[in-house]
């Protein structure tokens, strides 16, 4: 009896591992096919080009500010100081970072002349672009949630001004291309706002923030519908119970409906934000150097399109997958017991 049970257990487990095996064979087959296909293309791969677009060493010049003669070069290595004597007095330049000193005593220098150089690690264009994509997306998500919450509540309001505004907003924004919306934000609204700001002596707002605004309003429209569906999925009895205890409408919404709706909203919200991260690639069109634009620039310099587009895709995947994991974690935390 015990033996039979064990046999059954073994059969069950071996079937399980068989299907795990099938999954991995499938994955390997797809990767293999992709690799084979790329090998067939008449293309010279330059993968070694890619890392320097993530991080690279830049040469930094220490330059003179005045015209004059090098009066002295004292000290060695890190302690070196170059003193330049000009017509209006002398200036000293500490060479504490310099790896090489390019001047000697008695040399003539003019402003901009390199006295010494050193190298510094700096993030490459891809890393900068990824950071900007992350930043833009996070801003847009935060504002998108705010807009969506208000929109969702307005959408189910009995007040026609609120309700119809919400419907109009959702239908127009959801139904028109994001690219056009970005153009309208940047070329129409931004021009107007910046002109007004200039007239009253304020500084202009950077294109980045119009890009964030475009993404936030776009996402907000989708979030509005998600929030509405979430709120409406909560049984009417919950509102009635809250109201019967004397809570006002907003109190019932805040304490009873929204916390419950949040749980149901989270999964579709995650999908929406993953879309948003990818949609942010359109911001390149208004000269915001996010990941896609950075990739295009890297390709222009390196002339290696395939490597960089693949890299670009993987970087987006890193961002979206991280977001997925965060949301899944939140879902687990919010689940009832």
């Amino acid at each position: 009896m015990d033996f039979l049970a064990k046999l059954e257990e073994l059969r069950y487990r071996s079937a399980y591992f068989l299907w795990v095996g099938v999954f991995f064979i499938g994955v390997i087959a797809i990767i293999g096919t992709l690799y084979y296909a790329t090998a067939k293309i008449d293309y010279v791969w330059h993968w070694y080009d890619v890392p320097k677009y993530f991080i690279n060493q830049a040469r930094i010049d220490i330059t003179a500010d005045i015209e004059g003669v090098v009066e002295s070069v004292t000290g060695k290595g890190r302690d070196a100081v170059v003193i330049v004597k000009g017509d209006d007095g002398s200036e000293s330049y500490p060479m504490n970072k310099a790896e090489e000193i390019w001047v000697n005593k008695g040399d003539l220098v003019s402003p901009g002349k390199t006295l010494g150089i050193y190298h510094k690690w700096q993030p490459g264009i891809l890393l900068q672009g990824m950071w900007l994509t992350l930043k833009v997306s996070m801003y847009a998500i935060v504002f998108g949630i705010l807009i969506g919450m208000l929109g969702g509540i307005a959408r189910i309001s009995k007040n026609p001004a609120l309700k119809w505004s919400a419907i109009t907003y959702v239908e127009i924004v959801r139904g028109s291309p994001l690219l056009v919306q970005i153009f309208i934000w940047y070329f129409v609204l931004a021009t107007l706002v910046n002109q007004l700001l200039m007239r009253y002596g304020f500084s202009e707002i950077d294109a980045l923030y119009y890009g964030v605004a475009a993404l936030a309003t776009f996402t907000g429209a989708y979030v509005t519908e998600i929030v509405r569906a979430g709120i409406q999925s909560i049984h009417r009895g919950q509102t009635e119970a809250a109201r019967s205890l004397g809570m006002t409408g907003p109190q019932a919404m805040l304490y009873i409906i929204l916390p419950q709706a949040m749980r149901r909203i989270l999964p579709p919200l995650a999908g929406q934000f993953i879309s948003l991260i990818k949609d942010s690639s359109l911001l390149g069109m208004i000269a915001i150097r996010e990941l896609t634009k950075a990739t295009r620039e890297a390709i222009t310099i390196s002339l290696s399109p395939y490597e960089f587009w693949f890299t670009c895709a993987i970087l987006y995947l890193v961002l979206t997958f991280t977001l997925s994991m965060v949301v899944q974690y939140m879902e687990r935390k919010m689940a009832i017991q």
């Binding site: 049984h235 009895g237 119970a241 109201r243 019967s244 004397g246 419950q260």
Partner: peptide, 29 residues
């Protein structure tokens, strides 16, 4: 809302707040 606070109601389907503990259900309002 003032009147409702003076009138307690018990529903057929209970309508307890599922995201709150028993204690929180009773203390919230």
């Amino acid at each position: 809302n003032k009147v409702r606070a003076e009138v307690g109601m018990v529903f057929q389907s209970f309508n307890l707040f599922p995201h709150k503990t028993v204690l929180e259900n009773i203390t919230l309002a």
